[in-house]
Design a protein around this nucleic acid. Structure first.
Length: 120
DNA sequence: CGTGTGACACGTA
DNA sequence: TTACGTGCCACAC
């Protein structure tokens, strides 16, 4: 077969975005991942130079199609826009919170999801 | 093609 | 704990 891997036209809508959404969609309830974690996870998955900012950009555009509340800052603070909504999900999913009151903060130490098998 | 901005992260004060 | 400055990368103008 042609030395071409997969379809050459592959106009990957947004290859990077697709991977990010896939990872976020794989985060189980009660667990969360930081932008940097996702970027790092993708970096180990084959992606290149995915900065945490790029992950945030994807979430800002396609975030409405995934559990955006499971994607938070490295500090454990949820994304802006609907902190109360995120808190509602955390309580419903049993996410370990360090602060159940603004500033809402998730206990990253325990809620952090390694992503199945992260490079260590 | 330079400048500004942004759902970020990190170090230091 | 909060606040400020810096580095990083991609995109809009």
């Amino acid at each position: 077969m042609t030395p071409r891997s997969q379809q050459d036209d592959a106009p990957p809508v947004d290859d990077f975005a697709s991977q990010v959404l896939d990872v976020v969609d794989a985060i189980p309830p009660g667990r969360v991942m930081s932008y940097g974690d996702i970027a790092e996870y993708l970096a180990g998955a084959g992606a290149k130079g995915p900065g945490p900012r790029q992950v945030g950009r994807v979430m800002a555009v396609y975030g409405g199609a995934v559990a955006w509340w499971r994607v938070i800052h490295s500090d454990g603070t949820p994304a802006p826009g609907h902190d109360s909504v995120a808190l509602r999900h955390y309580l419903a999913e049993g996410t370990p919170l360090r602060s159940a009151r603004p500033p809402v903060r998730v206990d990253m130490r325990r809620a952090r999801w390694p992503g199945s098998a992260p490079p260590r």
